[in-house]
Design a protein around this nucleic acid. Structure first.
Length: 493
RNA sequence: CGGGGUGUAGCGCAGUCCGGUUAGCGCACCUGGUUUGGGACCAGGGGGUCGAAGGUUCGAAUCCUUUCACCCCGACCA
């Protein structure tokens, strides 16, 4: 056996190890045999499916439709938008041949005769291929807006990878919209950020800071990049979703022109926005404890597990009839229930296992309860056990699930709020950033001071946060010049 | 690409310095039994080209040469 989660007591020092162990042991994912890729296991994928399903519904409420574009992109597409190519060129996997042949030494080799005229890249993101197609779809203001989204995989040949947080291949959704006016596109970019923020806070119970990225941290090819930043338990930031206002950059690069209401030719305005399996990483690192995963009820594939405790097969038969009926009644209320009466694992093992998997509520019933008409309820977030009357347990559980959802959000929110520090003294900043946390600092708006902070402390400006009074930002803590904004600075994943 | 490290059973490791029975241990796995209110116990069993290739030797996991792979720390990133 490798290290137990509980043994990794000094969370701040062993945070990476703790996270890795948790991902593997909770049966979510594992390292693939392909470099930097991951295998998402059934339980992990069930969580991703819930994220997908709920978010997809939210997109559709805003008029977005789903599409699918090819995984392979002609190399030349990438070079059409200058900043975009610079941002992604260094991490592209490239397809150069289309055939293998048997080798004389056995095995197979790439057939040199099957070299492609133009190499294809495996999409790192689909702006180029989608905007190449939008040229054919968009001719008049009447064709706009185009509001498309696709759920797919993308590949970025990252140098260092980490399960869920940064794998070579990852699953995501990418929305790509085209608009007739700048205002409409900007509005859409902000709207989608709000969709993300609401989802992440309400369903994933992860509190966020929303804001806009600085020029250096912007998406390659964007005019503005909006972001949601979450705080992990070690005080580091995790960018959990982004929405970009792309201006007319892609419209011009791919010559997507339309005739507006005044019969004038103009280029289409663009947005793109995405969240990925990284959200799973955020979920794990925000709520989990040393017993394993803690899942918010709104996202848990199993919301309630019922474990019978019995002696002999007639004892089990007795409990089976009672607890199967209970499971059915809970399911009628839309609660996802697992009744685990498997005989090949003992109760203690099941308890530990479902805690590791983050099941929000556990119900346990044995002979003692049968006699007394009670049932034991354990909530995963606090690990508190309570014996309650069996009668009316359905109402109790339904309320408890909501309470847990609220409680873990409030807990995370309290943590976030208590780790945001206003700071305008650079010496103090350099010292305190070592312990993590978000720092609200005055910034003169120059790339130089931004680079200085990064060089000195590895911390970056996460965003110019929304909802912060920017009327009197103060003095830049690095340069001593008048500040333009108060910005959020933190170390990040 | 720079710095460090590791390859021995499915997983985690000992053995390597100083060559010597049939290569070991924990977990997992299989069979049987007893158990079952917090990760069960007993008995038995299966599983290994010791990363690969070459060399030294009566004899190599261990020594020499070459090589491959992976991991960690930096630069990159959703």
């Amino acid at each position: 056996m490798a290290t137990e989660l509980k043994d990794l007591t000094k969370r701040s020092e062993n945070y990476s190890q703790w996270y890795n162990e948790l991902v593997v042991k909770a049966d979510l994912a594992e390292q693939a045999d392909v470099r930097g890729c991951m295998v998402i296991k059934p339980y992990g994928y069930a969580i991703w499916e819930k994220i997908q399903h709920i978010l997809d519904g939210k997109f559709k409420e805003t008029g977005v439709q789903n599409v699918y574009f090819p995984m392979l992109i002609p190399k030349s597409f990438l070079s059409k938008e200058a900043e975009h190519v610079e941002g992604f060129a260094k991490e592209c996997a490239v397809v150069t041949h289309y055939r293998l042949k048997a080798s004389e030494e056995g095995g197979v080799v790439v057939d040199p005769a099957a070299k492609l005229e133009e190499e294809l890249i495996i999409r790192p993101t689909s702006e180029t291929t989608i905007w190449n197609t939008y040229r054919k779809w968009i001719h008049s203001w009447r064709d706009l807006p185009v509001l498309c989204n696709q759920w797919c995989n993308v590949m970025r040949w990252e140098m260092r990878t980490r399960l869920f947080l940064r794998t070579s291949e990852f699953l995501w959704q990418e929305g790509h919209t085209a608009h007739a006016t700048r205002e409409e596109a900007e509005e859409r970019a902000k709207q989608m950020l709000k969709v993300y923020a609401d989802f992440v806070e309400q369903y994933m119970a992860i509190p966020l800071i929303q804001g806009v990225k600085t020029a250096t941290e912007r998406f390659a090819g964007a005019l503005d990049t909006y972001t949601i930043e979450a705080m992990m338990q070690d005080g580091k930031a995790l960018q959990s979703g982004t929405s970009h206002f792309l201006g007319q950059n892609f419209g011009k690069a791919f010559n997507v022109q339309f005739v507006d209401k005044n019969n004038q030719l103009d280029y289409a305005w663009a947005t793109s926005w995405g969240v990925s399996t990284r959200l799973m990483g955020a979920l794990i690192m925000t709520h989990s404890d040393d017993n394993g995963l803690v899942l918010p009820p709104h996202l848990a594939p199993i919301q309630v597990v019922i474990v019978p405790i019995y002696k002999g097969s007639e004892g089990l038969a007795h409990l089976d009839s009672k607890l199967n009926a209970l499971a059915a009644r809970l399911r009628e209320r839309g609660i996802s229930v697992k009744y685990d009466n498997a005989d090949n694992r003992r109760p203690g093992f099941k308890f530990a296992d479902y805690e590791l998997k983050g099941v929000p509520v556990r119900l346990v019933m044995g002979e003692r309860d049968m006699a007394k008409g009670t049932i034991e309820v354990m909530r995963r977030d606090t690990l508190e056990k309570e014996v309650v009357p069996f009668e009316g347990i359905e109402d109790y559980v339904e309320k408890l699930l909501e309470e847990i959802q609220q409680h873990i959000f409030v807990k995370a929110k309290t943590f976030l709020d208590s780790h945001i520090y206003p700071c305008d003294n650079y010496a103090e900043f350099k010292e305190r950033i070592k312990d993590g946390g978000f720092f609200l600092c005055p910034w003169d708006g120059t790339a130089e001071t931004e680079a200085q902070i990064k060089a000195d402390t590895q911390a970056t400006i996460r965003c110019v946060p929304f909802g912060v009074d920017q009327s009197n930002p103060g003095t830049d803590m690095v340069s001593g010049k008048p500040a333009k904004f108060k910005v959020l600075v933190a170390r990040s994943y």
